[in-house]
């Protein structure tokens, strides 16, 4: 029963990982751009929510109304003002710029908010849960996170497959020079994609902050989980990202069942190992269309 509970909780945690992975997956899909500051931006979003909630006395859920547009605009501006200049066949500049940005964000957060752990308080819903059996209960917050993740990924999938914007994204992803011949401003489209990626990662950051305490240096771990979810699910597959996130979540909670030295759970370690096994045996991911 303990194991079954671990799996159920893992699926809930996986929703959060999938939410983190969405933006990474989108940016890579549209412009082959890998943002190494992705996790730090999520933490930045969570800290912005801390400031917004304490300054305006808002519920963290409500603070999303401010945090998401702010991050969306930041993503749009950063892509136009900086990231677009790094897009080339050579991946080095984009890696360096985003890696540098991530380190800067971490240290600015350290200077601004100190190294203390923070949390986002949404009230009594935090401890409420739905009891399934004696041994299994699903917390409302993890459940809401999973639902939001599925909704965000579903909306992204619909946008990509059904709307003019999604069509333009796919065209640019296929062949930017020919997309320009259609009158598509690819640079501007990249900025829109990055804005959306930042918006989703801000949602992920706020949900992380509601679920658990966080500090300025927690970004890289979130980047790695998001990346693992994307690769496990398969590059270029929206639903693959969800599957990857869920599998990774289960790996974390089941791995956490193993008690190791000094009382540390080995969830993240097991998660990394599952990722490496998938990478070795199925490099194109579980639902992927192609290896990259």
């Amino acid at each position: 029963m303990e194991w079954l509970n671990a799996i159920v909780q893992g699926i809930m945690l996986g929703g959060l990982f999938a939410l983190f992975a969405t933006g990474l997956s989108l940016a890579f899909g549209v412009m082959r751009f890998v943002n190494l500051a992705h996790g730090d931006l999520a933490i930045l979003g969570a800290f912005v929510a801390v400031s917004v909630t304490s300054a305006l006395g808002l519920n963290p859920f409500v603070s999303l109304v401010i945090v998401v547009p702010v991050m969306l605009a930041t993503g749009y501006a950063l892509q136009l003002g900086a990231f677009n200049f790094t897009i080339s066949a050579d991946p080095l500049p984009s890696i360096l710029v985003t890696f540098g940005l991530g380190i800067v964000i971490q240290n600015v957060l350290l200077e601004t908010y100190s190294a203390d752990s923070r949390g986002l308080d949404v009230g009594s819903i935090e401890i409420e849960s739905i009891r399934i059996t004696d041994a299994i209960a699903i917390g409302w917050i993890p459940l809401i996170t999973l639902i939001v993740a599925v909704a965000v990924l579903g909306a992204l999938q619909l946008m990509l497959s059904r709307t003019p914007l999604g069509r333009a994204f796919r065209a640019v992803s296929d062949d930017p020079p020919t997309a320009r011949l259609m009158g598509i401003n690819d640079r501007n489209l990249y900025a829109v994609a990055m804005g959306i990626a930042f918006a989703t990662v801000a949602v992920a950051g706020v949900f992380l902050g509601i679920r658990q305490s966080f500090g300025p240096l927690d970004g890289p771990a979130q980047l790695l989980y998001a990346f693992e979810a994307v690769v496990i699910g398969g590059l270029g597959s929206v639903w693959g990202t969800l599957v990857g996130g869920l599998l990774l979540g289960v790996a974390h909670t089941v791995g956490g069942q193993f008690e190791v030295a000094y009382g540390y759970g080995s969830g993240p370690l097991v998660g990394h190992l599952v990722f490496l096994v998938v990478l070795a045996t199925k490099p194109s991911g579980l639902l992927g269309r192609r290896a990259e």
């Binding site: 003019p164 069509r167 333009a168 796919r170 065209a171 992803s173 296929d174 062949d175 020919t178 997309a179 011949l181 259609m182 009158g183 598509i184």
Partner: peptide, 26 residues
């Protein structure tokens, strides 16, 4: 409008979408 050498259709778009995206500039 240029019809490029080698056609250069968008491989992940359907034929209908390839045509519609031609009207992107409106």
């Amino acid at each position: 409008a240029l019809v490029p050498e080698g056609r250069m259709l968008f491989g992940s778009l359907t034929v209908r979408e390839n045509l519609i995206i031609g009207a992107h500039a409106g």
